[in-house]
């Protein structure tokens, strides 16, 4: 396979194909299907300070062109992650990025500080779509001052690359500027799109939590818009994410300005997706004599 190294500020990857948080477990679950060490990076399931059970009731619904989830950030918590999962993840020979979440700034900082001492946490991806308890449940990303404070403090604590993951539902351009100014290495664009589903027969909301997050091909054009705008207006390196089902979808993101991509929902459609996208992308670059994926940008 052709070498496709890429770098996003201080984050250096052996190739630009990563997995999206929440769609690939902790990376070793897919070892039956292929050697996940081949991927550019693995972004693990989001980790909170304490274990989270997740939402009750329905958690998934497939719609035309997409998947809506209301999983509710179920995860084993930081202690189990460090004690039980990290040793398993040592077997994976590629960049390992830990996605973190918090209900207040202190929770993010606590997790980042503990991860800073762990070699296996090559980088952190920060989910800022979580509701902030102290500002009445509004997501972090909607509060620019809070986001700035979070970025600044995380930068002080964590010595390795930091990525912020944004959704299209928050003022992402302002956040991109804040992240750039505070020394955040890259932005993942985008998280799922907030959605709502109604069960007509039951005359009820489909999810106990009312809202869910939409992923899959339906959000790809939205994701491309955000990637392009962030890259053009702000210039911070971008990891494109949203509805990439094959290598041609990935090419669209590189052409829009992304330096790497994350594969999410496609991992459900076919557990080999991320590997196949990497393989096909590599073949495309070889055939078209493209030495650096970033040269694909069309503007």
């Amino acid at each position: 396979m052709k070498e496709l190294t890429t770098s996003l500020s201080n984050l250096n990857l052996k190739n630009p194909v990563m997995t999206a948080s929440g769609t690939f477990g902790f990376g070793f679950e897919f070892m039956n299907f292929y050697d996940t060490s081949l991927l550019g990076a693995i972004v693990c399931k989001g980790i909170s300070r304490n274990p989270r059970e997740g939402n009750r009731g329905h958690r998934l619904a497939e719609i035309n062109g997409g998947l809506i989830n209301s999983v509710g950030l179920e995860n084993p918590g930081l202690t189990d992650f460090i004690d039980k999962i990290i040793p398993e993840a040592e077997k994976i020979n590629t960049t390992y990025i830990v996605n973190i979440l918090g209900s207040d700034i202190e929770e993010y900082l606590y997790i980042a500080e503990r991860l800073s001492g762990l070699k296996r946490a090559d980088a952190i991806e920060v989910n800022i779509s979580c509701p902030n308890v102290k500002s009445g449940g509004i997501s972090f990303g909607k509060d620019l001052n809070l986001t700035r404070e979070l970025a600044r403090k995380l930068r002080e604590i964590f010595p390795r690359p930091l990525i912020f993951k944004v959704s299209a539902d928050i003022p992402y351009l302002e956040i991109a500027r804040i992240c750039r100014d505070e020394g955040i290495d890259a932005l993942t664009c985008i998280n799922t799109v907030q959605s709502l589903l109604i069960d007509v027969d039951k005359k009820a909301f489909r999810f106990n939590n009312i809202y869910g997050g939409l992923s899959g091909p339906a959000i790809k054009p939205v994701a491309l818009r955000v990637v392009y705008q962030v890259q053009k207006e702000v210039g911070i390196p971008v990891i494109g994410c949203g509805g990439i089902m094959n290598y041609r979808d990935a090419l669209e993101f590189f052409m829009a300005g992304a330096s790497a991509v994350q594969i999410g929902t496609a991992n459900f459609a076919n557990p080999l997706s991320a590997y196949e996208i990497l393989r096909d992308l590599s073949e495309y670059c070889e055939k078209n004599n493209i030495p650096d994926i970033r040269e694909l940008r069309i503007w």
Partner: peptide, 22 residues
Amino acid sequence: SHLACGTGVCLGCTVETRGGRL
């Protein structure tokens, strides 16, 4: 239950026990 992946990563297929465990 509804299920997306079958590999243990989507966490979509929960059922609730009588003790409230998922």
